[in-house]
Amino acid sequence: MFWMDRFGTLRTGLNPWIDTFYMQDRMDNLLSRFSTAASQGFPSVNVWTNEEKALVTTELPGIEPDAIEISIVGKTLTIRGSRDPEKVEDNVSYHRRERWYGKFTKTLEMPFPVNSAKVDAKFNRGILSIMLPRLEADKPKKISVKVE
């Protein structure tokens, strides 16, 4: 397991971040055996953060931007959408069929509560990028030390 520490160096071992996200995935996988509404871990995401915001990117080629639904509740980000299979005409033969299609729901826990009013989502070249600003009240406060 590789992860970047706060100084930007590549580290291995246990990372609280990864555990949080993995747990979410595992929970989803567990739930999916019982419920059809749970996520199957699709699509794959990358998460970038600093103290003020988080950036979530995911690859969703061939989806129309207005077919993507993003919702935020507290710390939880949910991405929903679907991609329809190509229409199958008569007299055609498939040589290969590898591309995914169907519905997906992805749920991710952010490391901090999100200011949902200021979330910004962009879709470019099949890549969805969601910028999630941290809730102002949750940002760390700097306390200056006075000399007496």
Partner: peptide, 22 residues
């Protein structure tokens, strides 16, 4: 890239998922 390849009467259609490419 993952592809679909379909052969029709007059042509072959190849579709490839390449997110990040324009």
């Amino acid at each position: 890239p993952n592809v679909d390849i379909v052969e029709r009467d007059g042509d072959i259609v190849l579709t490839a998922d390449m997110p990040g490419v324009d």
